[in-house]
């Protein structure tokens, strides 16, 4: 699971009001190089919740992102490279996503989060 996906995921348990962001329990993190595309990053930047993104990257052991970011920073290659790396190259391979409100753990196994709910959570 990439941090792009993490930034789009919320706790889906019935009754949960603040299900975002899910806290990351990182067991195993892997890096996979992918080609950078500046247009994608620029378009995606406005959709990303930056605070959640920075916290998520820190919980994955990556601390090179600035705490705050604005669109003027997209002109910097250095910033784009870091944004790209954290968004698309870091993968949570094993671990869990934890609902910020209830503490319910959604397991991540072989890079795949399981968001299926128990009957009493739907």
């Amino acid at each position: 699971m990439r941090l792009l996906t993490h930034n789009m995921l919320s706790s889906n348990i019935r009754g949960v009001v603040n299900g975002f962001p899910l806290r990351i329990e990182a067991g195993k993190v892997v890096e996979k190089n992918v080609e950078i595309n500046g247009d994608f990053l620029k378009n995606m930047f406005v959709k990303i919740d930056w605070k959640a993104f920075v916290e998520a990257s820190q919980s994955m052991g990556y601390t090179e992102l600035p705490e705050e970011a604005d669109s003027s920073m997209l002109d910097s290659d250095e910033f784009l490279n870091r944004f790209h790396h954290a968004l698309l190259e870091l993968h949570l391979e094993e671990g869990a996503l934890v609902c910020p409100e209830t503490g319910r753990r959604f397991p991540v196994s072989k890079g795949i989060p399981n968001m299926l709910l128990h009957e009493d959570e739907v």
């Binding site: 789009m8 995921l9 889906n12």
Partner: peptide, 21 residues
């Protein structure tokens, strides 16, 4: 090739933050 994969019912968990994307 690669894709982000999620075990979920339809798009449960994605409906808020992935809306309009």
């Amino acid at each position: 090739v690669s894709a982000e994969l999620i075990v979920t019912d339809i798009a449960s968990g994605l409906e808020k933050r992935l809306a309009g994307l």
